[in-house]
Amino acid sequence: MLLAQATPGSFDTLLQQLGNGIAMGSVYALIAVGYTMVYGVLQLINFAHGEVYMLGAYYSYWPARWLGYVPDAGEKPSVPLYIVGLLFVAAMSACALTGMLIERLAYRPLRKASRLAALITAIGVSLLLQNLAQMAFSADPRGYPQLVQQTSVQLGPIALANTKLIIIAVAAIMMTGLHLFVQHTRPGSAMRAVSFDMRTARLMGVNVNRTIAMTFAIGSIMAAVAGMLVAMDQPRLTPMMGLMAGLKAFVAAVLGGIGSIPGAALGGLLLGVLEALVGWQKPEYTEAVAFAVLIVVLLVKPTGLLGKTGREKV
């Protein structure tokens, strides 16, 4: 059906759309990791995760502005590399703190409460952060410092912004690093233990509270990186930017199999590519498709592509 409509040159467009999709999907993957890890340990959809992503972008914006890299008018100066590094560190640590704070204040008191209470709290935290951000930063969209001079890179028929290539590369490195961390280090095993069975993990001497805090911190760090990368590529910050990105990343996490880090990566990429392909033919239904995919996956394979089959506890 799709190919029947093909016209000369549309094969190039298809390749281009695949490129676009992979770049979008990399961002989804970075955010999805946060959802998947938190769901893995707490069985909680951390609705506020999209807002952490939004804050990541703002946390790097303010120091940059303070240092004079976001002037009120005129050309933006380019930012030296060590400052870019510092901004990343600043945003990542601030987001890690935010994530841990959310967990400590809002979620920990509810750990024994019903999952619905936790879900509603998560929605509340999301609303709170969104509206606090709107009050503190104003609803006015803000530009972003020029961390990298944006140029167009030609890869055969595909033209992508260099910032997109950076997104793909950084996302790949971060996801691999995280996977290795979880699989091959002691804190990583602790996380897996808590996610497998919290009570047994505690009996085996794992500090559950600290492990959960760490899970939130790591997820938030990934979101901060995603926030900054996206801001570099699409330099416009608004307090609402986390809403849709968060929802879609959640869809990606479910698609890949919630609880699985490689699953989040796969789910993110698949969702990104799928959206690009739908957008190629029917751009007006991109959003609907993301949700339709979610529903279908939940119905057909609720554990997602790479998720483990859960046990029914009676």
Binding site: T13, A23, M24, T238, M241, M244, P283, E284, T286
Partner: peptide, 20 residues
């Protein structure tokens, strides 16, 4: 004719269609 949803910030899908 390309459209996008509110709060979109990545318009590459639509832009590629326009390019083609």
């Amino acid at each position: 004719e390309q459209t996008y949803a509110a709060n979109t910030s990545d318009f590459n899908t639509q832009v590629s269609n326009i390019k083609g």
